[in-house]
């Protein structure tokens, strides 16, 4: 089938193209199961090599190719032509400065990530037997969902609060903080809760719910943010998440 791509472009080095503009490309022999990323590659390799976008793994795990596709944030490698129709509009994710075509400056995003102490902290002595710290399967389950995050920025750049206010840490950073706050082995939950209690922390979340459907990993993001808010309110992550019984492999 034939598909028309309408792509939001910008080239900072070419006068006249250094402001965002739309460009159309026509592709024929498109299979319904082709991914948008493949189509972007075809445009780049067959029609216009100047088209710039990030990509790597091409199957929804590395998080390079977050874009706004037909109005919503997706990974270009995880959305098929058949789910979009024959007119496909692609533009950069919003809220981060556009550097060239579909490439945005990810530095502010990673700066927010680094802000929430996104690393494991436990300064107690290691187990004497030289083995792993123990953790029950139930405790492990509490933060399972938020370990899936690939930092693609689909959620953060789908958030109207973030569009309005780039100093808001954003859903992705809160998801990353959640992964540690609710890890029974970690000891810095109180510090992270303090950081997120700042005016630009969790409180800028207005429960708009744009982040949750934008997540290519299907993380329950707004729920995670809610749990962090409650943890701040109660001063502790204890008892906020209830897990169902864990089944064991035989």
């Amino acid at each position: 089938m034939d598909v028309t791509f309408r792509i939001r472009r910008l080239n900072p080095e070419i006068p006249g193209k250094d402001k965002p503009y739309w460009q159309e490309f026509k592709l024929s022999d498109v299979e319904p199961t082709d991914r948008v990323l493949e189509m972007l590659h075809r445009i780049k390799w067959e029609q216009d090599g100047t088209l710039a976008f990030r990509r790597s793994c091409a199957h929804g795990v590395c998080g390079s190719d977050a874009m706004r596709i037909n109005g919503v944030n997706r990974l270009a490698c995880k959305v098929l032509v058949k789910d979009l129709g024959t007119k496909i509009q692609v533009e950069p994710i919003l809220g981060l400065p556009v550097l060239k075509d579909l490439i945005v400056d990810m530095e502010p995003f990673f700066a927010h990530y680094r802000q929430v102490m996104p690393f494991f902290v436990n300064d107690t002595p290691l187990p004497e037997d030289g083995r792993e710290r123990l953790q029950s399967p139930q405790d492990r389950e509490l933060f399972d969902d938020t370990t899936k995050c690939i930092l693609c920025a689909c959620c953060t750049t789908a958030c109207p609060s973030f569009w309005a206010n780039g100093s808001y840490v954003g859903p992705a950073a809160i998801v990353q903080a959640h992964r540690f706050i609710f890890d029974s082995r970690d000891q810095a939950a109180a510090d992270r809760l303090d950081i997120l209690a700042e005016p630009d922390g969790v409180w800028r979340c207005r429960t708009i719910f744009n982040c949750t459907p934008a997540c290519p990993r299907e993380i329950e993001i707004t729920k995670a943010i809610g749990e962090v808010k409650l943890a701040i309110m109660r001063g502790s992550p204890e008892g906020i998440i209830q897990v169902q019984e864990i089944k064991h492999e035989a």
């Binding site: 690393f119 792993e132 029950s136 992964r179 890890d183 082995r185």
Partner: peptide
Amino acid sequence: VIELEHMGLPFDRTPEGRIS
């Protein structure tokens, strides 16, 4: 692997709490 666990890697767990 033990060091990775000490760095916080969230391995799945056995009922005893060890790395599955």
